[in-house]
Every structure is written in C-alpha cells, then in structure tokens.
C-alpha cells in the first residue's frame, strides 16, 4: 500500500518529521500569542485562560492532537536517530565537517530530548499537578518567580531556539522549498523564527525573575 511504503521510505519519514514539526511550530505560535497576554497583566492573561478552557471539548481534542503530533515527531525522530547512529560516529579516523555552524543540526536529537523533558515538566506543573483552585495567572507567577525553575525554563527555550534554527530550515527543505530567489529570506527566517519564540517565551520567566512583572 502506498502509505506503508511512504512511511517506510527515508523521504517519507522526513516528510512526517517536517509535517509534525510544522504543526508543532503552529501550535507554538498560537501558544506564544496567548501567553503574550501575560505582558498585559494578570487580568488579561486570566481572561485568555478562562476563555480557552471555556471550550473543554476543543481543548481535549487539541490536547490529544498535540499528543499524537508529539509522539509521531519523537518516535520517527528516534527511529531516524537510531538508523543513522551506526554510520554517524567514528566512521573516519579524522572527523571533520566542512559546513560551518553545524551545532544546531548535530544536536537535533539532544535539543529535542531536552524539549521533551521540558514539556513533561511543563505540562505536569501547569496542568496535571497544578495547585487546585488557584487561578492559573497566580500559579504562573509563583512558579516562575523561582530562580531555578525560571532558569530551567530559559535554558529550555534556548534549546528550543537551537532546535528550530535547524528544524525550521530543514522542514522547508524537506517540503521542497528551496529557490535561490527566496533562500535569502529563508536564511533570515531560520534566525527570526527561533529568536521570536526565544524572546516571547523566554521573556516570561525573565519578566518575573527580574521583578519587571511585580506589578503583574
């Protein structure tokens, strides 16, 4: 069947990675815009949270969808990682890369793993084990005012940015988006997109840590 051969093929797996990656980026964008309400004050953030959770079925569907995306992205990624492991290390006496700045691409599995750990802690902290009866806007401030908790968040966002730096470009390449006319723009976007998320997400713990959010 075409789908089986699609999933089995090397390019098929890459397309799954790219598609799930794209959808995860879209989710991140929505999430980031929602979270931006924090910068407007706890009142607005609480309104956003309450509105969102006013549609529990929608949240459930999106939540499950996200889970599927995550699982697909991670499992196919792991599969590719294991497949390439055999050839990846110590193939040559002299290991050398000609391409400069390969940090992001070389660390994809590790930044990915870090993001997974973060996601589990994040979902656990703000969803599953969130203090009952406390408004989410309060919980956010409580958690993120802690130095180590915030630091962990910031480091995670840096990992996300690094992951996206290669991931975003790689996704476009896998989809076949590579044209000399737009490559300059794409090159800029591989910086802009990760920095965008880093600033928007990373700003939140800094906002609370530094005390800039004391009036929140």
């Amino acid at each position: 069947m075409w789908f089986v051969s699609f999933v089995k093929s090397s390019i098929g797996k890459k397309i799954i990675m790219a598609t799930t990656g794209l959808l995860l980026i879209l989710f991140l964008a929505v999430h980031a815009f929602g979270n931006a309400a924090i910068y407007m004050g706890s009142k607005y953030f609480q309104i956003y949270a309450d509105t969102l959770h006013g549609f529990p079925v929608l949240v459930l569907i999106f939540g499950l969808g996200l889970l599927v995306l995550f699982i697909a992205h991670i499992s196919v990624g792991t599969l590719l990682f294991l497949e390439s492991r055999s050839t990846r290390y110590s193939r040559y006496e002299v290991n050398k890369r000609v391409v400069e700045n390969t940090f992001a691409s070389r660390t994809m599995p590790f930044t990915g793993l870090f993001i997974l750990v973060f996601t589990i802690i994040h979902v656990f902290g703000f969803n599953i084990a969130a203090p009952a009866g406390v408004p989410i806007s309060v919980t956010v401030k409580e958690y993120l005012s802690g130095f180590f908790y915030s630091l962990f968040y910031i480091v995670s966002f840096v990992a996300l940015a690094i992951h996206l730096n290669h991931g975003f470009w790689s996704m476009l390449q896998t989809f076949g988006v590579n044209h000399p006319r737009y490559n300059c723009l794409i090159a800029k976007l591989t910086i802009i997109v990760p920095v965008f998320f880093l600033v928007l997400f990373g700003g939140i713990p800094i906002y609370f840590m530094t005390g800039a959010g004391s009036a929140y």
């Binding site: 090397s10 390019i11 390449q173 000399p180």
Partner: peptide, 26 residues
C-alpha cells in the same frame, strides 16, 4: 542513509551540485 539536511554533500561535491536538487527530489 536518510537526509538530515546537513549540507555536507553540497560542500564536497566536485561538480558543485546544489542541495536545491534534493528539495526538488522531495
């Protein structure tokens, strides 16, 4: 193996073949 868009191939290709072709293949 599979392609993880590392661009090494393009850099060492003696004929300067671009990875734009890989995008086209995809």
């Amino acid at each position: 193996g599979h392609c993880t868009n590392e661009k090494e191939c393009e850099m060492v290709c003696p004929k300067g073949i671009s990875i734009r072709n890989i995008a086209r293949l995809n």
